[in-house]
Nucleic acid binder design. Structure first.
Lengths: 124, 124
DNA sequence: TTATTATTGCAACTTAATCGCAATAATAAT
DNA sequence: ATTATTATTGCGATTAAGTTGCAATAATAA
């Protein structure tokens, strides 16, 4: 499916670019000036994920968060670092720390979703 | 609140003990012989989590999974290891590998939720 | 045996996310 | 420019996970 550039996509990208945090659909919707439907935002975000422009984090609240991470562009995995959720200010951000692990014989790891929860630098 | 022992609690514990995997409320309900309400199972599971008998994992599908992990009884954190979700058989299990990380200055980590996704030993 | 209160089932509710479909609009073709 | 193609959007409905209030039930203490 060929992609088209639309005001919605530009608005979403621009909000994510302006943020150094991962954002939920809800947070993105509130940050955008123009009115965009919830379903549309999800569709656009998921498309960005498919295209590798954005990565999705499932936080320990079970919700989806989306981020443009400048640091991890050149990495093999699109999203190979830890994420941090602050239990005070409820924000989620990418950490520089990469995830390292070893798995038992004959397990194959395709991707991962690793969140640390605690107090961020502004809240501790 | 003092705890009482009930058939529901015994059934849930017994199912989790018999499993070497983490289980969702739904999976637990289907495995139990007697009929138990969804809300009750959640309440019992969350109580077990509070009491440190069971630990809860939020998988990358956003759903809650519960496990009794024999390995991590004596650890400082109740749940300080990686979890693995098999993208073929959809099971989630505790891995022996502990989570190691470093965070930037002045971040305080309280707990974490780390999942690796891929093919388990039976499916690879 | 009775009293206390933790537990349960039921129904209703909340929230996140998805989906089908018709209308709209970005791009390609003429 | 104009038209045709089809990706995108908004709307409404829907699904699914999980929670909550409340009255009835049952485990434990008295």
């Amino acid at each position: 499916m060929k992609r088209r550039s639309t005001p919605t996509k530009e608005a979403v990208i621009s909000v994510l670019n302006a943020s150094n945090k991962a954002m939920s659909q809800d947070a993105i919707e509130h940050k955008i000036e123009i009115e965009i439907d919830r379903a549309t935002i999800y569709r656009v975000l998921n498309q960005f994920c498919e295209d590798g422009i954005v990565h999705k984090i499932i936080a320990d609240d079970g919700k989806q968060y989306f981020a443009i991470c400048k640091k991890c562009d050149d990495q093999k995995l699109p999203d190979n670092h830890f994420h941090f959720r602050c239990s005070s200010c409820q924000t989620i951000e990418c950490l520089p720390a990469l995830v390292h692990f070893s798995v038992p014989e004959s397990y194959k790891v395709e991707r991962f979703n690793c969140i640390l929860i605690g107090k961020c630098k502004d809240c501790s």
